[in-house]
Every structure is written in structure tokens, then in C-alpha cells.
Amino acid sequence: MIRVELRKLARRPRTWAALVLIDLLPTVVAVLLAVTHIGPRPGQGPAFLSAVLANGALFSVAALAIVLPLFLPVAVAVIAAESIAGEAQIGTLRYLLIRPVSRLRLLVAKQIAVFAFVLVSVILVAGTGFLVGSAILGHDASTPATSIVSVSGSTLSSTQIAIRTVLAVGYVGLSMLGVAALAILLSTMTDSPLSAALGSLAFLVGSSLLLTLDAARAIKPYLPTRYWLSFIDIFRDPILWRNVERGLLLQLVYVAVFLGAAWANFSSKDVTS
């Protein structure tokens, strides 16, 4: 069943459109930077962007930072919201269930397919970022091409950078799982994928908004987007694990709660679509 769901996802034009769009934005940013050489001043704009003019290889990380706040979660929410509601909307859900596919198997297969999409999109963004960055962004003569300055100011070797980029890719991917799980939960509640996608986005927007509010300090550590940008800490020297660990734990709790609720709802639901 998992293979079937992956095949379905891979054969949907929408999947590829989403991947292309996610990749397009960082590419456009890279081209603009390369053409104009106007980078944001350090400390402003998306993380790492100020550094990529000096070292194009770092653009894979910058690309992640560019798509992380909005593009990536939107794509993930749209794809995950399709999972059950999409089948319900076109009527194929009933035919799957009377095949029979057990409801648990269907839900798990959908989750795995969505998680696979998250993983592929994150890797693709980082990969494209690396290639585009290396190809068109400069190598600053003042730093050796094989090393790079970490966020903390010390120098990292390219091996260290490679390892840390892989870690960052993994962290960003896991950060998206909370959104994915919420969209899947909403997807079991409605027959409209659009409502499920918008519902999960509303949750994210709400979370981001509360993060800017001082009065919300007490609940901030529990907001799903709180630790998203903590992947930057992976590029400190030494790696600052504290927020990364908290971010991972938080995402896992969200995933467990949302998927548990999705199962509770779906297992006893009347399928009338």
C-alpha cells in the first residue's frame, strides 16, 4: 500500500509543480544576487544570505532559510491535505476502503507518502541551492574556497559544512512533519482538501503571529513554528544543540498528537463521500 501511495504521489502533476515552485524561489534569489551583487547586510534578510556572496556553496543552507517560513509549509500543507480529503472529494476513498484497504494501513501509507514528499522537497531545495550557488555565486578570495566562517565567527572546513548541511536538511524536514500531521488530521475531518490545507496554514500563521507577541511569552515554547529557524544553530561552533533538541521534541509531540487524533477520527468515521 505504501508503494501504491508513493506511485500515486509521483504520478500527480501537482506534486511536481509544487517541487518546481519550491525550488524556483531560491533560484530566483540566487540569480538576482549573482547579477546585482547586492546582498543583504549581515543580520538582515533571510539567514545566510549575506554570506553567500562570499561562498556560493553555502547557498544550499540559505535556500532552506528562504523557503522555510512560507513556501515549504504551504507546499507540505497542500500535499498532506490532499491525502484523505482528496480521495474523498473525487470518490475514490470508498473504493479503496472496500477493496479492502484497512483504514489504518491507508492512513499510515498516506503519512509515509507525505513524509517522503517533505524529505524529497527539502533535499531538492538544498541540492538545487548548492548547485546554483556554486555555479553562479562568487568565491570570495579573502577566505579559502575550502572553508567557511561559521555563524559564531570561527572557520569550518568544507567537510564540517557538508555534515552540518545534511543535519540542517534533516532538521528542516522534521520541522515540517508537524504541519504535515496537522494537515492529515484535518484531511480526515473534511471532504475538501482546500479547507484542510487552509486550516493547517491558519494554524501556522497564528503560531508565527503569536511568536511576535510579548504577551504570549508563556506559550511560545510550545508553538509549532518556534524552533523552525533553530537550524541556524547547527552552523554555530560548537553546534548549539539546545533549541535544535527542543524543536525536534516539539515536532515529535505534535506529530504524535495530530496523527493519533487523525487515527481516532478516521477509524470510526462514516465514509459518506
Binding site: 501504491v4 479492502p100 484497504v101
Partner: peptide, 20 residues
Amino acid sequence: AAYVHLSARRNLSLLDASGP
């Protein structure tokens, strides 16, 4: 109900593969 972006054969083959 069917996935309209796929062929009739592909639809049936996916459905067949879904079953136990």
C-alpha cells in the same frame, strides 16, 4: 470514481495493487 489524470488501465492496476 477514478483518478482522471491516469489511464483506465493505470487506475485499475493501482486499485488492484491496493488490495490484500
